[in-house]
């Protein structure tokens, strides 16, 4: 197991380094830079733009900039935002909490709704209830979540003069207000996950329910609920956990638009605005952080198989 983990960590380091190279190069391939935007509405003098580029280090040789980036990343010091002058590490810590809370809430909602419905749908296979639940799940997957988000703001405001609360309140400051701010965005973000979880679990449950050991369990006289909980669900969950792990990554990246719509200042919103402003340092730091989270999540998902299914532990 230790060798396996060490191997995975080594592979992960290579992946992270490649991500750094790709991000570093790709942000600089985008047309324009932050200076174009700084000077867009000023009475700038000829030559001022180049002076500002020199001042910000944008004219330094690319290898020098890359070494600065890698060295900083190793020390967890990403420098300052070109746009706001804020220290990026502090910015990431602040924003990460918001995105994680949103993602975690969405994950909990998606799982809490998706798993029972998946089980229920499998157990009640081919009944009207099964058809209704499957239709709802397909709807949840197919309707774009950003559209649902906009509708949840625009329609109640126009017809009922109600709109969800604006912005972010820290959970440490006011937990109730914090929940008020996060519930709706998290719910919208969770719809697709709930649908996907429900469908995946239904399919795997149906497979498991037909296996021999389930007949044995039934012959032993176990109650239906014990058969489902202890035997069927536990076996059916493995692919679902993979799905949830991958979906969590999607929740983190998908939250960018949700954060934008609901005015939550999370990592996604930071990344979008940094790309717009060509704030290279911040784009690099956020992307690196997200890549790290993705790699770590995948590793944890792989390791979690062993906890659920002893056979994968041995292999």
């Amino acid at each position: 197991m230790a060798n396996y983990i060490a191997g995975r960590l080594l592979l992960s380091s290579v992946t992270i380094f490649l991500v750094m190279v790709i991000v570093f190069v790709s942000v600089r391939l985008m047309p324009g830079d932050i200076v174009d935007q700084f000077l867009q509405d000023t009475g700038s003098q000829p030559g001022q733009a180049e002076e500002l580029r020199d001042h910000l280090g944008l004219n330094d040789p690319l290898p020098e900039q890359f070494v600065r980036f890698v060295g900083g990343a190793v020390r967890l010091d990403f420098g300052e935002s070109l746009w706001t002058g804020e220290e990026i590490r502090g910015l990431l810590i602040d924003r990460m909490g918001i995105t994680f809370e949103l993602g975690a809430l969405a994950l909990i909602m998606g799982v809490v709704v998706g798993i029972p419905l998946g089980v229920f749908s499998a157990v009640k296979q081919s009944t009207p209830l099964d058809y209704i639940l499957r239709s709802i799940a397909i709807l949840g997957i197919s309707i774009p979540y950003f559209w649902i988000a906009i509708v949840t703001i625009a329609v109640p405001a126009y017809y009922w003069k109600w709109a969800p609360p604006i912005g972010h309140v820290s959970i440490l400051t006011d937990p109730i207000a914090n929940l008020e701010h996060y519930l709706l965005p998290a719910f919208v973000l969770s719809i697709s996950l709930a649908g996907a979880t429900m469908r995946m679990l239904r399919a795997t449950m149906l497979e498991v329910l037909r296996l021999d050991f389930m007949r044995t369990a039934s012959a032993k006289g176990l109650s239906r609920s014990v058969q489902i909980r202890r035997h069927a669900l536990r076996n059916a969950l493995i692919p679902v956990i993979t799905l949830i792990g991958l979906r969590f990554v999607f929740l983190l990246s998908g939250s960018a638009i949700i954060e934008q719509v609901y005015g939550l200042p999370g990592l996604g919103q930071l990344l979008l605005s940094s790309i717009s402003h060509r704030d290279y340092q911040v784009v690099q730091a956020v992307t690196l952080l997200v890549a790290f989270i993705i790699v770590l999540t995948n590793l944890l998902v792989d390791l979690s198989y062993g906890l659920i299914d002893p056979r994968t532990r041995i292999s």
């Binding site: 625009a154 109640p156 405001a157 003069k161």
Partner: peptide
């Protein structure tokens, strides 16, 4: 800071 000002205003 809010994107959809009009909805918030209506509300």
């Amino acid at each position: 800071v809010i994107g959809d000002q009009w909805s918030q205003f209506l509300a």
